[in-house]
Design a protein around this nucleic acid. Structure first.
Length: 258
DNA sequence: ATGGCTGAGCTACTCAGA
């Protein structure tokens, strides 16, 4: 079972790139973030042609998340947390993994910049609520995969120039501690668990030749329940989509799990 | 390097991203 996560920065502007990616990589499940459209304008038909069902939590202009799946998914939930600003940032589903039920949680965490504004407070509040609800969820199902755009640089190794981000909403200690808090509930950052000292990124700015210079950061993550880590076959950051014409600023991360 | 580049909504320009 291959599960991919990709912040596409508009599903409609990116439809060709997504199409190419699906044909090239053929994930069983594709988690999308920043689809930037309402449900009624989501390109369901495009995905149907490729053999996928769409589960969409859209929003006009900003945010929005979706799950694209080859097989039908159950218990779709779009209200995992109560969002103060009613932004579309979480969609969850239940996935059959052999005999186990895997709770799939697709997230798009608020950016939080600038740090001296209510945007940063919103990010902190959002993460706080999210952690609380994950704690509750674990009581019912301890097989969980949290995937998506966390907008968190976990460690210094996860960005090209940490100095520049240590007071940024993505790199601040206060925010990185939230990430640790989440992991301490019983998760592994699958990429870092499998790649102890590797420096790879999932995001590169559009400007100043960031991609060409490899000035990036690792902010898209898969957090998997400790109990399932033995089931992981591979975890890969697929840089190919970032090298294409009209790319998203993020690139997909791919988990193969048995 | 708090800039520069891209997308949505709209049709001039602002907001948001990270």
């Amino acid at each position: 079972m291959k599960i991919s996560s990709w912040n596409v920065n508009s599903v409609r502007a990116r439809i060709k790139n997504i199409n190419d990616y699906i044909k090239d990589s053929s994930p069983d499940v594709l988690l999308l973030q920043e689809i930037k459209t309402q449900n009624e304008n989501f390109p369901n038909d495009e995905f149907k042609k490729l053999g996928y069902l769409s589960y969409v939590f859209g929003q006009k202009s900003y945010n929005g998340v979706a799950i694209i799946s080859k097989n039908e998914l159950n218990n779709i939930n779009k209200s995992f947390i109560k969002d103060n600003l009613n932004q579309a940032r979480i969609i969850t589903a239940e996935l059959k993994l052999k005999s186990k039920k895997l709770e799939l949680i697709n997230i798009y965490v608020p950016n939080g910049n600038p740090v001296d504004t209510e945007k940063y407070e919103y990010k902190k509040e959002w993460l706080k609520k999210f952690i609380t609800n994950i704690e509750k969820k674990i009581q019912k199902n301890s097989n969980i995969l949290i995937a998506g755009d966390f907008n968190i640089i976990p460690e210094e190794i996860d960005v090209h120039d940490f100095k520049r981000y240590e007071n940024d909403a993505l790199g601040r200690l206060e925010i990185r501690k939230k990430y640790r808090e989440l992991i301490n509930l019983g998760f592994k950052d699958v990429y870092r668990f499998k790649n102890k000292a590797k420096q790879e990124y999932t995001f590169w700015d559009y400007f100043a030749g960031s991609w060409q210079k490899n000035y990036g950061m690792r902010i898209d993550h898969f957090l998997l329940s400790n109990s399932l880590i033995e089931n992981v076959k591979s975890i890969k950051i697929n840089k190919k989509p970032r090298s294409k014409e009209k790319p998203s600023d993020h690139t997909p991360i791919e988990l193969v799990i048995i």
